[in-house]
Write a protein that binds this DNA or RNA. Structure first.
Lengths: 208, 208
DNA sequence: CTGCTTTTTTACCATTTGGTAAAGTGACGA
DNA sequence: TCGTCACTTTACCAAATGGTAAAAAAGCAG
């Protein structure tokens, strides 16, 4: 069921491993900057330091590369939400989640933009993933938060909008980096300040 | 200095006005969905109900259409921020700004996505606009907010991050609509709930 | 070294895409 | 009614783009 070529039972060679990684890294760079339709195989090939036909030796086509990237992305992207512990202290769990998401905006801006591009354009290649991967987790965690509110541990707000606002505020620094950097010139680490601000924001909202 | 063809001193005819509007509306639809490089003149032509050469009779090319759209967008996009009155009640002014921005996400989602697409891809055709249009306004208004904080009218936070978080949370509902609609199925007007939630969010943050 | 497999390159191709030239059509004032 | 100007269509084109076939080169087990 893999999208990669030669993905039979045989274990991939050292060369395959290395080149697949080079291709995916180059593709992440290009797709995250130009979106799916704006990216070209030639750009990816150049970034990867390989020829275009050579890239098509490793992947079945442009779409296959994109899908592979999105698959790998979803694994890591949902991790921080998974880590939110229903048995932990509610306020601290949520603030820790905000911190982890902010951290990802700093560490993986390309992944954030790849995701943003895909969603912006209607999630044509990711709708299934949203349904089967994100939706159940979202329902589960909003229910947990609702439980915390019902128990009076945190202030009562719509948990869905709470999660949306966490995603929006944290990913903003990666997705809108071009704007942020124009408006805060010479700032060495604007995300540092964001971490402090967002902690205050959600603490004030939720403190019972 | 206009980007449109035949933009001499002569006033545009009725036909020109109608067709330019048709083209720009079609272009907004297509660019906001696919981004600049992903959009094609053929798509725009079809949406506009005109032939491709006919479109190029009214505009100098694909880029000219895009630039025209971005120019018109910036006018309206900054309006809500302009309306924030330094002499009004601080908390109410900011909450009113949040409300206006939320409203725009509901009323003009395509414009929001057009903007988001452009920023996501590094603002290649809008960097000047950000510098000359947005930046001064941003500096002015963050200074106003800082003044309110210094006067003890609202709680003290970094005004820049405050504004970023307002943009992020309000535009999220338009830009990530594909994701939001998957996670809140059957919701007739999710933005209604967002308005309530965001009012609470920023009130709790800023109430002195 | 030898023969076999894996990897890479060269040379293409069909389609799409932004754009143009020029002929044709229509509206409208003199 | 006629000529002029504004608008539209038809027929193209060159470049870019995703993709392929097949030869050449590089690894590598024996």
């Amino acid at each position: 069921m893999s999208v990669e070529k030669t993905a039979t039972a045989k274990k991939p060679s050292r060369i395959q491993l290395r080149n697949r990684k080079k291709i995916l890294d180059a593709a992440l760079e290009v797709f995250s900057q130009h979106g799916y339709r704006g990216a070209t195989l030639d750009q990816i090939a150049e970034h990867a330091g390989l020829s275009k036909p050579n890239i098509l030796y490793y992947f079945d086509g442009k779409e296959a590369i994109h899908v592979t990237l999105l698959n790998k992305l979803m694994e890591n992207w949902l991790d921080p939400l998974h880590e939110m512990n229903p048995n932990g202290d509610p306020l601290e769990e949520i603030c820790a989640y905000v911190r982890r998401k902010t951290e990802m905006s700093r560490e993986f801006p390309r992944e954030s933009r790849l995701f943003a591009n895909e969603i912006l354009q209607g999630a044509p290649r990711m709708a299934p993933h949203l349904e089967t991967g994100l939706k159940p987790l979202f329902d589960e965690k909003t229910a947990v938060i609702q439980g915390w509110m019902d128990a009076g541990k945190i202030n009562r707000v719509d948990p869905r909008h709470l999660v949306f606002s966490i995603w929006a505020t944290t990913q903003h620094y990666a997705d809108f980096e071009a704007q942020v950097s124009v408006l805060t010139p010479g700032e060495k680490d604007i995300i540092q300040g964001a971490e402090t601000y967002l902690d205050t924001l959600f603490r004030k909202l939720l403190a019972p």
